[in-house]
């Protein structure tokens, strides 16, 4: 957390971004796994994990949607200086940042097309806490089953039913991160 738009970037971008990416890759390849990710800092209320993730993946080529609560002059200045991502509405976003409730309606984000399912949004969802309990996860990347504290299950179950279309989600809390790709089947139990 900081209020200076000029600081908060990686000190050694190539190496820190490489480590951060490997953590995200590990999380995305193993849904439900919680990893640590460090190196970036952005104005409140953006978590260090979300800031690091944006520094690792976002740039001038990735339209970004800021949900209410994660928008404001200080945040926009920080993004303009460090990332350069154009701030857009949800229909045109490649990435979106915000709390789960503030991101609603989540169905408004691009889910890709049948020919190009990769042209879909990645939601960076800030949550209060991440634990390996709660919703029941199965699918690619999970040997038998996994659990992850999700803000809800209904949306994610419907999102998985759209496969190969759908959005991919990354949950951030403090310096921790977990991912839920569209391929993961989510159940309440």
């Amino acid at each position: 957390m900081l209020d200076d738009a000029l600081s908060g970037d990686f000190a050694d971008a190539p190496r820190e971004a490489a480590r951060a990416f490997r953590a995200v890759l590990d999380a995305m390849a193993r849904p439900g796994k919680i990893v640590d990710i460090l190196g970036g800092a952005a104005p409140a209320p953006i978590s260090p994990a979300a800031a690091t993730l944006m520094l690792t993946l976002c740039d001038g080529e990735t339209p970004l949607y800021l949900a209410p609560g994660h928008d404001g002059a200080a945040i926009r200045q920080w993004i303009a200086f460090h990332i350069g991502a154009p701030i857009v509405d949800r229909e045109n976003a490649m990435f979106a940042l915000g709390n789960w409730a503030a991101l609603a309606p989540q169905t408004g984000f691009p889910i890709g097309t049948p020919e190009y399912p990769d042209r879909s949004a990645t939601l960076i969802v800030e949550v209060d806490a991440l634990t390996s309990e709660g919703a029941h996860l199965t699918g690619p990347g999970i040997e038998s089953e996994a659990h992850l504290s999700l803000p809800e299950t209904g949306f994610f179950a419907r999102n998985a039913a759209l496969f190969p279309l759908g959005v991919d989600c990354v949950f951030t809390s403090g310096s921790r991160l977990a991912a839920l790709p569209r391929s993961t089947r989510v159940e309440d139990r």
Binding site: L57, D118, G141, P181, S183
Partner: peptide, 8 residues
Amino acid sequence: ILKGVAIP
């Protein structure tokens, strides 16, 4: 790569 992992 991340989109590839999400859509095996």
